[in-house]
Design a protein around this nucleic acid. Structure first.
Lengths: 242, 242
DNA sequence: AGCAATTTGTTCGTATGTATG
DNA sequence: CCATACATACGAACAAATTGC
């Protein structure tokens, strides 16, 4: 059981807030789940109810919980609504949401892709692609882990450009592809493999949204094949019609 | 270990085929996984290699496996591509795929819905809805488990009509809603709760696609809130742009 | 419809710790 | 060392909303 220390320079409410926040972010407190009442928490941490309320107020500020008078305090359904449309730009989406978004480049490689990827990109079995792996974060925790394939013949030297620009849109633009659109998006649910779970810092038994997509240029020629694994708990794909 | 019996009126190849098919359908053999070689299976079942080949041929006929010359036999990636669009009609989708589709009515109820549902349908907190639960099957195994909410005030007596027609489209049509369209679709990945796992006849650690959707009439008024849990292994949602 | 139990929200007051000048 | 300001922490009482009986 987690304990707090008095008089060590960190306010009690801050310590309590930190413990609860960690529980939520680690998934030990599930989405929509009710927290113990302020009174119960006060007993557990051996502090006054006001102090607990101060801690919860901080969590509410961070949008981790939601309180309802007369009912209780609940773990906020903290889903990022991820719009999917033919103009989807993944990084751009993040900017539109009021979260701290950042992206980390993991690695790139020049290689012959899996058959399904080759076929989707309209390549022969022995044609090379560039593969680029990245991780996106929002508010500090991993939202998605993406693998993107580009035809190497058409986009010679792409990885270097990508490392510099860190954006698919801007990178393709450097190669003259000023516009592209989503041709199709396939969505399924699966458990992450060991590597994916590690990169996404999530338990291996928490499912991910497995999204495969093709982007085509204005002439309909495939320019990118993408595999994006979204944290199933934190991301909802939203398909709007309006 | 599963055993086969000789001379009991069921051909050996048929029994072997049945055992392997059950393994595949129960998910013990995962999608894309390679089966043991015909020789290995022959040893395991204590039959001739030809008998195993006959069994595998039957599986291929049922489109459960795919054999590749010189490589081996693999569990067919047996995904149903489920198109999602503003005109999505779930049952209709099934008919378009070349599978045996059937639907089972589970139960209905008149009740106050969860707050999120009420809000999405534009109802007050105390207004009633009809809830209808169904299961869809394709080729005998469960593809999705759906819960649909309808405003009770507007569609008085809906469950009786639904039981008779077994179709959302036709039921709404009886109430004068001759046309409706998908307003939005939200997709996330989660593990099934115990009840869902049981109804879908799948292990509790296999993820489902959790899809929430709203259908609105031609004036934009919500007529149905749906929760559909798709078997993550067997269903891919496909969002086309063409 | 009423009532009790529970939980969050609010407002007092009081005491203590910390930083500053 | 003292005065002040501010954040922290506790206690009591009451209001408002929800839930279950």
């Amino acid at each position: 059981m987690n304990e707090i220390e008095r008089g060590r320079g960190v306010a009690l409410w801050s310590q309590i807030s930190g413990i609860l926040a960690a529980d939520i972010l680690k998934g030990q407190l599930r989405q929509g789940e009710q927290l113990p009442s302020a009174q119960e928490l006060a007993v557990r941490f051996n502090v006054n109810r006001h102090t607990v309320r101060r801690a919860i107020a901080a969590l509410e500020q961070r949008n981790l919980v939601r309180t309802e008078q007369g009912r209780g305090t609940f773990v906020q359904e903290h889903t990022l609504d991820y719009p999917i449309s033919r103009r989807t730009r993944f990084t751009q989406n993040m900017r539109n949401l009021n979260v701290e978004a950042d992206m980390e480049f993991l690695e790139d490689a020049r290689e012959i892709p899996p058959p399904q990827v080759a076929q989707s990109l309209g390549l022969d079995r022995h044609e090379y692609t560039y593969r680029i792996e990245t991780v996106d974060r929002a508010d500090g925790h991993v939202v998605d882990y993406s693998t993107a394939y580009f035809p190497a013949a058409r986009f010679s030297g792409l990885p270097a450009v990508y490392r510099r620009l860190l954006s698919v849109t801007r990178t393709l633009s450097e190669f003259g592809v000023t516009d592209y659109e989503r041709k199709y998006t396939r969505v399924s649910a699966r458990l992450p493999d060991a590597n994916t779970a590690r990169l996404m810092k999530q338990p291996a038994n928490r499912p991910v949204l497995y999204v495969q997509s093709i982007n085509v240029d204005t002439r309909g020629v495939p320019v990118q094949y993408g595999i994006t694994r979204f944290s199933g708990d934190w991301v909802q794909l939203v398909l709007m019609n309006d």
